[in-house]
């Protein structure tokens, strides 16, 4: 059996689903951010797989996209963790279940 595009796509889908479940179910805000990071990495893996197995035109542009996604993910995690710190300072918790200030 040859390791082909489908192997990487299935792996990416599996990783995306694990990250999705972590992001939906974790109580801690940092745990939710870890899940989001896993989802972004799964998408990156899929894009790089298409870069290797796609035609020559997409080989470069997918890798450039991956660079952009990594940059945006870094910005997202920095702001997300700063937000977690502010919530902790005001509420003494970063549990997403207990930050219910906007609940009616």
């Amino acid at each position: 059996m040859i390791i082909g595009l489908e192997h990487y796509l299935v792996l990416g889908a599996l990783l995306f689903c694990i990250g999705f479940f972590i992001a939906l179910s974790k109580k801690n805000a940092v745990g939710v951010l870890i899940g989001v990071e896993l989802m972004l990495n799964a998408v990156n893996l899929t894009l790089v797989a298409f870069s290797r197995f796609g035609s020559a035109e997409v080989a470069l542009s997918t890798q450039v996209f991956v660079v952009f996604i990594i940059a945006v993910a870094a910005a997202e995690v920095a702001v997300g963790l700063a937000l977690a710190l502010v919530v902790y300072r005001n509420r003494q918790t970063i549990s997403v279940d207990r930050t219910t200030l906007l609940k009616g």
Partner: peptide, 22 residues
């Protein structure tokens, strides 16, 4: 990013360290 996350966990000492599911 992992070091940033570890810093965020260390800076929120009284928040729960537990990573349990809802």
């Amino acid at each position: 990013i992992s070091v940033l996350m570890l810093f965020a966990i260390m800076l929120t000492p009284r928040a729960e360290r537990d990573n349990s599911q809802n």
